[in-house]
Amino acid sequence: MATRTGLRTPLFAWIVAGWALANVADSLLAVILAVWVVELTGEAALGGLLFAVFGVPALFSPLLGRLADRVSRRRMLWVTYVIGAAGLAPLLLVRDASQAWWIFAATVLYAGVSYGTAGCRGGILRDLLADEDLGSANSILQTIDQVLRLGLPFAAAGVYLWTGPLPIVAAAIAGFAGAAIVFASLRFAESPVEDDDDPFWRSVTAGFRHVARTRPLNRMTVVLVLLSSTAAFTSSVGFAVLERMGVEPAWMGPIEAMSGLGGLLAGVSAAWLMRRIGRPRVLAAGAGIMVVGVAPMLGDGVWLLAAGLAVLGFGVTAAVIAYVTESHVSTPSRLQGRVGTSVNMLLQLPSVVITAAGAAALGVVDARVIVGCGIAMCVAATVVAASTPQDVGGRD
């Protein structure tokens, strides 16, 4: 029998602390790795290509999801964080452009950490919390994530400009190691692993089937895929947009950190909004707001770009919280791992292709054309989200 807890308990507080430590690593490295590649090689396109590499582990994510549904998720969490810390260690030896491929290799492993933990997170929250607490829990976690994304990129950029990337890498390793220690130390009962008599590949793909047949999760997933594609279009040309505006690549982190400001506001209000208007409508509102946030990338104003990213952060965070909560509520514990990783695969594989294509297209077309494609995807997502019926999902 799984342990039941509440939002105001020491157990939940420690779980939040563990995920916060892991997010420290993510917030420090998400942009700095790409900046590092650009500085080493002098190629803005390679920085955009690095963002595409983040999606490579998506190819194997359903296998990780099946594993998360068949082992202790708490144990899988801390082991995965140990692997993440070890995978970053070689970056401490990178010194010149000939070793830039080490950064790409470490990025694949580092990105794999998020896929390995995606199913674990959903399963643990669903085991520990009642349905009515899931929205608030996801809002809390997203709020902490946005606070870190707001503050740490500024600190990382300052450290990078002053001493280079190595102290940042060391801090990220410490974040993963700290998260591993927290989850290795916690003790709570998880839901028992249920027998699965399906053939191997049918078992692996059970998450996709659940998403496809569950309403409104299926339509909400389409919306999130379109929004993820929007992010891919814009990420692929981020450095080119800054170059057009005359801004150094190292400022990518602080400028993108403005999205954390909007994300913070969304994090503290999303649970209330979901109770008032429902999860699909919050998703629709987030998609519409994202259109406004991306538009300044078509112009030449740095401050307008920063303001747009704050608006974008609000829309993205609200949409993600609404979707993740719907996924947790409408998915039984035995499928949480496979659903979480299947959705990640649906989001990331198109993003990999789009980001790589966008980075390659920079030599042929203006960055504004690629941004325009992203806005078109975002508008399509808003239309689909606006026609999605209200919540009908729930616990099986």
Rank of each mutant, 00 (worst) to 15 (best):
A2G: 03
L11P: 13
L11T: 06
L11K: 04
A13V: 12
W14G: 06
V16M: 09
G18Q: 02
A30M: 10
A30P: 03
I32T: 15
V35A: 06
G42R: 11
G42S: 15
A44L: 15
P57C: 02
L77Q: 11
W78I: 03
V82Y: 02
I83P: 06
L93V: 13
R95W: 09
D96K: 14
A97P: 13
A106C: 11
V108F: 01
A111W: 00
R121H: 15
G122E: 00
I124W: 03
L125A: 12
A130N: 04
G135T: 07
G135D: 00
L141M: 15
L150E: 04
G164Y: 13
P165H: 09
P165A: 15
A171E: 06
G175M: 06
G175S: 13
A177P: 00
I181Q: 03
A189R: 11
S191Q: 08
V204N: 07
R209G: 07
R209F: 03
H210E: 13
A212L: 09
N218D: 11
V223T: 02
T234L: 09
S236R: 10
V241F: 04
E243F: 05
R244I: 12
R244Q: 14
M252S: 15
M252V: 11
I255E: 01
A257G: 15
A257S: 15
M258T: 14
S259I: 01
L261P: 05
L265T: 06
A266P: 00
R275L: 10
P280S: 02
V282D: 02
G315K: 01
I321R: 00
V324P: 05
E326H: 06
S342W: 01
V343S: 00
P350H: 11
A357K: 01
A360G: 13
C373N: 05
A376Q: 11
A376W: 08
V379H: 06
A381G: 12
D396N: 04
